[in-house]
């Protein structure tokens, strides 16, 4: 058993400190850096929590390139599910739009 708080809790807490306490005190030239750090923490937290991103079968991309899946609706459904799962980690806001 690891000692709590867990990674998700620590990252969320650290991110809140960054955005609420550190960022407002920074000169304007460094606020973008702080926002990027907050974003990296947010994505990293979702990456750590993720355990079930589906794996495309080996050779799938090459087979698509070779024309073996043209008009293959099952292949398209798999591609959509995979892209959606990765987008939910990288930028879930884009899924809500």
């Amino acid at each position: 058993m690891q000692e709590p708080p867990d990674a998700a809790n620590l990252l969320a807490t650290a991110r809140a400190v960054l955005l609420e306490r550190i960022l407002p005190a920074l000169p304007p030239g460094q606020q973008l850096d702080a926002r990027m750090v907050a974003r990296a923490i947010e994505i990293a937290a979702r990456l750590i929590a993720d355990s079930a991103t589906p794996q495309a079968p080996p050779g799938f991309a090459a087979a698509i390139r070779a024309g073996q899946h043209d008009d293959d609706e099952a292949a398209l459904a798999m591609l959509r599910a995979d892209a959606r799962a990765r987008l939910a980690i990288s930028n879930p806001r884009a899924l809500r739009e």
Partner: peptide
């Protein structure tokens, strides 16, 4: 570079977009 690192996480949105446009 943190900026370059975060740019990598823009790829899934672009891939998702590419599927939608193709459809």
């Amino acid at each position: 570079s943190l900026e370059l690192a975060l740019t990598g996480h823009m790829v899934p949105e672009l891939e998702f977009d590419a599927l939608n446009i193709t459809e």
